[in-house]
Design a binder for these strands. Structure first.
Lengths: 205, 205
DNA sequence: ATCGTTCGATAGCAGTGCTATGCATAGCAT
DNA sequence: ATGCTATGCATAGCACTGCTATCGAACGAT
């Protein structure tokens, strides 16, 4: 059989591309190849050209994000956990804005990485936990509910990254949006979602 | 005085760039210049290169969007009008997805067109009208409220355009998000926001 | 009519992603 | 151990990108 591909090259290419994004530099074919100590052809043997590399970057970015969200251990307050998850999501996005933009920038490649669904699944599980604890109305469907939380969060984050809203908008506007939605899902009469009112800060772990 | 710039060229360049986006084609310097019946230099006399042209495109896109939203005449139900404005916003975004993406894609140009504030101002005015009619809690601050509506709408639209949500999400998820937020602002006890529950359809005018 | 100034067309620059071409290398059969 | 073969990868060149230097030409003021 023929010579096997040096699998480390593939990882290095994704690493370098991700690092370039984090550094705010442009991700270009030759720059990536050089920094990964290979030639431009590496991008074509391991990926389907530049779009393929960017897809791999998105895939890994979503996977990392999902891992970060899962790393948050559930507490005894599943509604507060839901907010913590959102907080961690926001924190990750702001920690690497260029990467976050790439994650949602399907150029001409409409594929969505499997890992994106993983990230989403964390939200769904969070809603289901809150329902199991009788904190949210059991008639609320978890998937649509998670979708709405995701859309709200992504909406504010996206506008902030687009310079359309100041960074402070995350602290000022996202909590009341969560509050309104959680109340609509039954967290109102039972007890006030104080967790949300406490503000929007970096997650503990 | 010297020779005056042919101001029609400037408009034609913006036209052509916008049309290319609507056609789903890539906007390239030579393509734009050719289609506008001028040379590549036109982009540099009338704009600050390609970024300048794209900024002008965004500026006009926001202005057109603001005009469309203003064209919606207020009815006797200001809360329903708020929803209609959102509906028109969504419709405009879906009518030209590539243009909408460009509107919020600040490449390395952090400037935000004045016309973006115009669009936003329509939302603020809508909230104020609802308060004047005693339909929303007067303690709600219009600017933050409008920001939240904008973020929710943009969030869902953005995820749909990123292929992260199906188009149907606009009909299924945006209305309940509006409902929850409007209820939180006082539209609950008084009367049900039936306007929202009616669904998410194309605005009349 | 003349002049001066600015527009805008032409050509060339470095850089982009991509492909065609070789060549060295790693695995297998012998 | 030794060929053979199929594959990874480097090189060079392609058409294309945005941009700038140059220069002719058109217009307004005088």
């Amino acid at each position: 059989m023929p010579r096997p591909a040096d699998t480390t090259v593939r990882e290095r290419l994704i690493d370098v591309a991700t690092d370039l994004l984090a550094a705010g530099e442009e991700v270009t074919l030759r720059k990536v190849a050089n920094a990964a100590d290979t030639s431009t052809m590496g991008v074509y043997t391991h990926f389907d050209g530049m779009p393929g590399l960017m897809y791999a970057v998105r895939e890994r970015a979503f996977a990392r994000l999902a891992a970060e969200l899962i790393a948050l251990r559930p507490t005894t307050d599943p509604v507060a956990d839901l907010v913590s998850t959102g907080s961690a999501y926001v924190f990750a996005a702001l920690a690497d804005p260029a990467l976050y933009r790439v994650m949602f920038d399907i150029g001409r490649d409409p594929r969505q990485p499997m890992s994106a669904s993983m990230t989403f699944a964390v939200l769904v599980a969070g809603v289901e936990r809150a329902q199991a604890d009788d904190r949210l109305d059991p008639k609320v469907e978890p998937i649509p509910a998670a979708t709405q939380l995701w859309a709200m969060t992504h909406g504010v984050v996206s506008l902030v990254l687009a310079e359309a809203l100041p960074t402070a908008a995350l602290d000022e506007h996202l909590p009341p949006m969560y509050t309104a939605q959680l109340v609509a899902w039954g967290d109102g009469p039972r007890r006030a979602p104080a967790s949300v009112r406490r503000g929007w800060r970096r997650p503990a772990s």
